[in-house]
Design a protein around this nucleic acid. Structure first.
Lengths: 136, 136
DNA sequence: ATGCGTGCAAACGATTTGCAGCCGG
DNA sequence: CCGGCTGCAAATCGTTTGCACGCAT
């Protein structure tokens, strides 16, 4: 690829691999700052967009409609996510079932080129155990 | 309910029933204006929020992350949507399959209180027939 | 009469963009 | 050296909010 590898892009890529779960551009930006890195917010946005275009990161929208990113181990591989509403723990989901379902539903209605957005939200077992104890 | 019924709220509700598919607050606002109605954009937003809280309208997010609304015939009934990327035709989907799938996947990972966001996008048969002919 | 609802515009938060200077290849 | 990359801040865009007034109840 013709991507010029700069310090900024390296640290963004590096950060993405060192953190768990999904994070917004703003969050990543702040992490970088407190990490002592010199980088602009716009650059973080541009880098994240670039990475996602090249399928180097996994992108999804959180409940607020904001874009959140994560290093994509399963790059290029289609999958979805199950995320805890309390602790934000995220689990990657492989759903041949839904994939099939989506295609079938689409086909049944005469649609082609089916794509889909699927996100699952719930309370993980850990948070369930401490339910009500961490409201904040 | 303790909702005061005002002219503005009536016209918003009325408009929602007279149009097909999903529309953003801004779109609805402009429709009202060109309809000769006197109403503020903020009121449209507030009204739409209110309606959705009372489950009087169906809300979803479009691909851009914006909230779009539609009068909800199947009020309170959980369902999803299949929408054409070309003409925006929207089809309401009942998916016991996915509902089950979502619950199972959640349970398998120890999650409870499972909720989900599912949207399907595709090209409808009609647009498929005229494919490439209406780019813009 | 009371207080919720409204309109306007300013505030807001996320994201994008213009432009001049920097640096990787 | 050249052109893509960066940083900053201003510009956008959708949405929310503060405040004074109007209207439904």
């Amino acid at each position: 690829m013709s991507l010029r590898m700069t310090r900024q892009r390296e640290v963004v890529a590096s950060l993405l691999e060192s953190v768990e779960g999904f994070h917004s551009a703003q969050e990543l930006y702040e992490m970088l700052l407190s990490d002592g890195e010199r980088i602009g917010l716009a650059t973080v946005y541009r880098t994240l967009q670039l990475f996602s275009e090249h399928e180097l990161v996994d992108v999804m929208r959180n409940a607020d409609g904001e874009s959140v990113y994560r290093s994509c181990q399963a790059a290029g591989r289609h999958h979805h996510h199950l995320l805890c509403r309390k602790c934000s723990k995220t689990i990657e989901i492989d759903g041949p079932t839904v994939e099939q379902w989506a295609l079938q539903v689409g086909a049944r209605h005469g649609f082609t080129d089916i794509e889909h957005t699927i996100e699952l939200y719930g309370i993980c077992s850990n948070c369930r155990a401490t339910a009500g104890a961490n409201t904040g």
